[in-house]
Design a protein around this nucleic acid. Structure first.
Length: 424
RNA sequence: GGAGGGUUGGCAGAGCGGUUGAAUGCACCGGUCUUGAAAACCGGCAUGGUUUAACGACCAUCCAGGGUUCGAAUCCCUGACCCUCCGCCA
């Protein structure tokens, strides 16, 4: 959520910046609520002051043995008035808060204005899409050929948008997870974490999934808990309600978790294959840094994700998302898109975002600035490093061979017990 | 599932319903002393908000939400979380 001060003072420029991401800030509503809030707060405070001083007088009078009955008569209706004023204030604050929670983050100046993904800017490309001298199969056909990937079996066990992997494909997925965690912990200095896969609503509000995006989540236990849609939620919330020492920054966490998404609203999209599943594995990078470091950290974190693609020899391009395609809580997002031969195009495999202080404000995640001695909000960032299901898919398609077998990327061979090729 | 105990500032830990935003200790910051350090001594040290040009003034916060009261950290109710014992269990 945004700094409430912005909502009070600089609404015009705020509205202009939010208009860039096609968000229509209701200035009229905001201003009238704000005026109402100010008045209600002043009233409530004045009554509070009076009550406090009157009560103190009564206390003193009683202590010195005076008759307090007349004093009590004077304050007879004060409590009722105060309660009414408080109720009015609470009501306005609740409305303002509800409004504030639905306002997205402000895009950084370097983010291009745009409507949807068509307006995203390509920043760079790495690798060359492979050329095949045989008919290219998609990963579903390759998996079927290997007899190690079964969507029908998964649907019988669960429902559509689930998969089962067996044998060397299941192992390849595990190898990818190990490999990614090893690179990020050993070379990029992230701390490995293990976190809950079921989280409460506060945690989801902290990272911005709630209140706006409840329909994308799977709820459990009468809505008391939710399956995580990404490790971002539990990992970022590790610093909730805390004040970090400057010496412990930057905080860099990496976690492998399954992710669960209801995919409400994407019926009919990517129905075939691994691209869009209700359950998938992901290795997630999360950083918490001082405000002054977050832009550099964003570039570095994106580089860490890119490094995985490069080591796996997967061609990709790096996209700077336009204002219209960015997530709710983000100030700036790079998407990494991997080459998929079967679709003859690039598809998202990682999304790396800088959230500024937006999530930290909701979580009350702070650090103590030694220069001022005061707590300041952290900046939070995260990125997939990488989405494992989609990485598996990309390997199958980019490394497929004419006989239906699949070559294992060199860096993964040690993680596959020396196996260099997957056969049926 | 059953029975008990608990939740107070960065930490530990006091707190008869009335000037307690909260004793005390530790930690931390500044100073005195010292060649330097330690010790000792002195002082400072929560967060958020309203208002103000500023100094300041005021308000809120002792797990959360209700209630009683002129007045609640303190009394009552509900909930969350933590701990102990019993039962069950990977």
């Amino acid at each position: 959520m945004l700094d409430p001060k912005l909502l009070r003072t600089d609404v015009q420029s705020l509205a202009a910046q939010l208009a860039r991401r096609n968000f229509d800030l209701d200035l009229e509503l905001l201003n009238s609520l704000e005026e109402e809030r100010r008045q209600a707060q002043l009233d409530a405070q004045a009554l509070q002051t009076e009550r406090n001083s009157r009560s103190k007088e009564i206390g003193k009078a009683k202590a010195s043995g005076q008759d307090i009955a007349p004093l009590l008569a004077e304050v007879d209706d004060l409590a009722d008035k105060h309660k009414a004023a408080e109720a009015r204030l609470d009501d306005v604050l609740a409305k303002l808060n509800a409004l504030a929670m639905e306002i997205p983050n402000i895009p950084q100046p370097s983010v291009p204005s745009g409507k949807d993904e068509a307006d995203n800017q390509e920043v760079s490309r790495w690798g060359t899409p492979p050329i095949f001298d045989f008919p290219v199969k998609d990963h579903v056909d390759i998996g079927n050929g290997l007899q190690q990937m079964d969507f029908e079996a998964a649907a019988r066990i669960s429902r559509a948008r689930f998969v089962t992997l067996t044998g060397s494909l299941a192992r390849l997925q595990r190898a990818l997870i190990q490999f990614m965690l090893d690179v990020h912990t050993l070379e990029h200095d992230y701390t490995e974490t293990y976190v809950p896969y079921l989280v409460n609503a506060d945690a989801l509000r902290g990272t911005g999934q709630l209140p706006k995006f409840a329909e994308d989540l799977f709820a459990v236990d009468d809505g008391q808990l939710y399956l995580i849609p990404t490790a971002e939620v539990p990992v970022t919330n590790l610093v909730r309600d805390s004040i970090q020492e400057a010496t412990s920054l930057p905080i860099k966490f990496v976690a492998h978790t399954p992710c669960f998404r209801s995919e409400a609203g994407s019926h009919g999209r990517d129905v075939r294959g691994l691209i869009r599943q209700h359950q998938f594995e992901k290795v997630e990078l999360v950083q918490m840094v001082p405000a002054s470091d977050s832009e550099a950290a964003h570039e570095a974190l994106t580089g860490h994700a890119e490094s995985i693609l490069q080591r796996l020899e997967l061609p990709y391009r790096k996209m700077l998302l336009c204002t219209g395609d960015m997530g709710f809580a983000s100030t700036k997002t790079y998407d990494l898109e991997v080459w998929l031969p079967s679709q003859n195009t690039y598809r998202e495999i990682s999304s790396c975002s800088n959230f500024g202080d937006f999530q930290a404000r909701r979580m009350q995640a702070r650090w103590r600035n030694p220069d001022t001695g005061k707590p300041e909000l952290l900046h939070t960032l995260n990125g997939s490093g990488l989405a494992v299901g989609r990485t598996l898919l990309a390997i199958l398609e980019n490394f497929q061979q004419a006989d239906g077998s699949v070559r294992v990327p060199k860096v993964l061979v040690p993680y596959m017990g020396g196996v260099e090729t997957l056969h049926g």
